[in-house]
Design a protein around this nucleic acid. Structure first.
Length: 371
DNA sequence: TTATCCCGCCATTCC
DNA sequence: GGAATGGCGGGATAA
């Protein structure tokens, strides 16, 4: 998220590191915590001593500007101090950032009900232990929408979102819904952005809107990752990271989950298929499948594949050499969606096996070379 | 006027 | 060098 101990002018020199007094906003030329000097931070619910930020500043009056030190000290602050309320001014001062930076984070946290607005500048902090309940409710909400055939964009906004704005909060909820509706619980920001573009936004200028959406999703993903709802993973053959939903147990902590490379490879393979030839292109599916057990059959694999499909789905057509149309036992053409799902399932299973064998092969080769 | 929110530029980091 | 990442300011809008 967009929080940093220092800030610099918009036009910055290309320095890797800068020394800036902690707690000072360069553009403002004033200590950021000066306007909190009248705050009784304890009374505001933040259980930290008054002038906590000022003390920190004195203790380490200069800190190296380092972008790798990513923000989100926000959540750390509340875990450590066990606070019940969030005073935006105090948090902004403590972290040495402008308050508008905090709004973004709070809006996202609000979408998963970790905080709720109490009054101006003050939010209730519900704690991470509420997450399982929240997620269960979101799943239920998603299920209801699926039953009604509604899309993500038609999800009812929360009460707090009905007034102007709160788009970040709503976007955050839709992002979570994307995970909940996916079997593999993995998605890249690029994919998410594409799916979360409103129909009206797809019409023109969608490249700019797509980039903006990705920018917002970075913010959301960082916050969700910081509370442990998702985790960032690197695909084996791509620089593009993906985010994976993490299971949360009833105590609000994450269940231990192993993320095998095979899972990612399957995601990658599926992703390539989706963004490449159409899933309805049975030939493209057949090609990948034919490389498995039928590989040794040479060019007969295509024929075998078709025969196999015929047997399984009951292909029946007037001219089998040209038509791919498939029929069920009552001679009714099978709906494309059914074909699509069937082929997806088969490819998914094939890729799982393939990656398993591939990893096994590499391991064997490695141990052989070690000897 | 102030609080809040949205947008997107562009610097930095990473591969 | 280009893609990923994220800091940050301008400006709009609601209260």
């Amino acid at each position: 998220m967009e929080m940093l101990v220092t800030s610099t002018k918009r036009k910055r020199s290309r320095k890797v590191a800068q020394l800036v007094p902690l707690g000072f906003n360069v553009s403002d030329k004033k200590p950021l915590n000066q306007n909190t000097s009248n705050y009784d931070l304890k009374a505001d619910g933040l259980n930290i001593p008054p002038y906590f930020g000022a003390e920190s500043m004195l203790q380490s009056s200069f800190r190296e500007y380092n972008r790798k030190e990513k923000s989100l000290g926000f959540l750390k602050l509340f875990r450590e101090h066990n606070a019940r309320e969030v005073c935006l001014d105090a948090v902004a001062a403590e972290l040495g950032v402008e308050r508008r930076r905090i709004y973004d984070i709070v809006n996202i946290l609000e979408s998963i009900h970790l905080v709720s607005r109490k009054s101006k500048n003050l939010y209730n902090w519900h704690g991470l232990s509420t997450l399982p309940t929240t997620i269960a409710a979101m799943k239920e909400r998603h299920r209801n929408c699926s039953v009604k055939g509604e899309t993500l964009h038609e999800l009812p906004a929360l009460r707090s979102e009905r007034k102007r704005g709160k788009s970040l909060s709503h976007l955050s909820q839709m992002f979570v819904d994307l995970f909940l509706q996916r079997e593999d619980r993995i998605i890249s920001l690029d994919d998410a952005a594409k799916q979360l573009l409103l129909p009206s936004e797809c019409e023109n200028n969608n490249d700019r809107l797509h980039k903006t959406k990705i920018r917002r999703l970075y913010d959301i993903a960082n916050v969700l990752a910081s509370v442990g709802l998702i985790e960032k993973l690197q695909l084996p053959h791509s620089r593009k990271p993906v985010f994976r939903w993490r299971q949360i147990d009833r105590e609000g902590s994450n269940e231990k989950q192993d993320v095998g490379q095979d899972v990612l490879a399957v995601y990658e393979a599926n992703h390539r298929q989706r963004s490449g030839p159409s899933w309805c292109d049975t030939d493209s599916v057949k090609t990948s499948q034919s490389c498995n057990s039928e590989a040794e059959d040479g060019d007969s694999c295509g024929v075998k594949k078709r025969e196999s499909n015929t047997a399984q789905l009951g292909v029946q057509s007037g001219d089998q050499s040209n038509s791919v149309l498939r029929f069920d036992s009552s001679h009714t053409p099978i709906h494309p969606q059914e074909i699509l799902q069937s082929e997806q399932k088969r490819l998914h299973e094939f890729m799982r096996k393939y990656v398993e064998e591939y990893v096994q092969h590499l391991a064997t080769a490695q141990s052989a070379s070690d000897l």
